[in-house]
Simulated scan of single mutants.
Amino acid sequence: MLRTFGLGAAMMAAGMSYAAAQSCEQNFSVSGVPMVTAVAFKTFQDFPKLRPDVALAKLAQGVAAEGFHGIKVDKTLSSVDAYQDTAGSGRLQTLRVVARKRGGGTRVDAVFEIQAGQIADSNIVRKGLCTIVESAVD
C-alpha cells in the first residue's frame, strides 16, 4: 500500500510541475459564441525569476510591436491595456496584459476580447497573444 501511495504521490507531483511549466500555447483558451456574443481569448505563462516591473516594461513594447494603439501602462495594477480596430468599423477589440508576482517569478496573463458580431481566427490570435506574453523575457 505504501508503494502505491508513493507512486501516486510522485505522479501527482510530476503533474503539478508539468502544469506549472505549460507554455503560453498550451494555456490558450477561448470563451463566448462567435458572431453571437463577445469572445474572449485568454492565455498565461509563468516566468521564474522574472520581476513583474521588468516584465511590464517589456510587455508594453511587445503590445506596441503587435500593432495595438492607445497603449496605457498602469504600474499600480501592473497591467497594459490597448486596443485595435482591424476592420476599420470603429468597433474596437481590447487587450489587457497583466504581470503579477507568483512565488519567485511572474505570471503573465493576457486577454483579447472582440465584440459580438466580430470574428477572429483563434490560431492567429493565439500566435499574437503568445508573442506578446513571451516578450516579457525578450
Rank of each mutant, 00 (worst) to 15 (best):
136 A>I: 07
33 V>C: 06
131 T>M: 04
129 L>R: 03
131 T>S: 14
54 V>Y: 10
60 A>P: 01
92 L>Q: 13
124 I>C: 06
33 V>R: 12
68 F>L: 07
100 R>W: 11
55 A>T: 02
64 A>W: 00
137 V>W: 05
64 A>N: 09
100 R>C: 09
31 S>K: 08
15 G>R: 15
123 N>C: 01
39 V>C: 00
36 V>K: 10
100 R>D: 15
82 A>N: 02
50 L>T: 05
115 Q>E: 15
134 E>R: 15
103 G>M: 10
52 P>R: 07
123 N>A: 11
136 A>G: 07
121 D>W: 06
19 A>M: 14
106 T>I: 05
121 D>P: 04
84 Q>E: 13
123 N>H: 09
42 K>R: 10
2 L>V: 09
32 G>H: 00
126 R>E: 07
34 P>Q: 00
49 K>D: 15
94 T>G: 02
105 G>T: 06
95 L>H: 01
84 Q>H: 10
113 E>K: 13
84 Q>S: 12
57 A>N: 09
94 T>S: 08
35 M>H: 12
45 Q>W: 01
124 I>H: 13
82 A>F: 03
137 V>S: 14
43 T>H: 04
55 A>C: 07
40 A>V: 07
77 L>F: 09
29 S>H: 09
110 A>V: 02
34 P>N: 02
81 D>E: 14
103 G>E: 14
57 A>G: 07
106 T>D: 07
25 E>T: 07
101 K>W: 12
97 V>Q: 01
63 V>N: 00
38 A>Q: 11
133 V>D: 02
9 A>L: 15
12 M>R: 12
64 A>I: 01
16 M>N: 10
83 Y>T: 03
111 V>Y: 03
48 P>C: 05
48 P>H: 04
20 A>D: 12
33 V>P: 13
73 V>L: 05
27 N>A: 12
74 D>Q: 09
104 G>R: 09
6 G>A: 11
130 C>P: 04
28 F>S: 01
59 L>P: 02
19 A>K: 10
105 G>H: 04
32 G>K: 02
96 R>D: 03
91 R>S: 08
45 Q>G: 01
14 A>E: 13
96 R>Q: 10
59 L>I: 13
8 G>S: 13
16 M>F: 14
42 K>C: 05
101 K>C: 07
20 A>M: 14
125 V>Y: 05
6 G>I: 07
33 V>E: 13
49 K>F: 14
86 T>D: 12
134 E>H: 09
130 C>D: 05
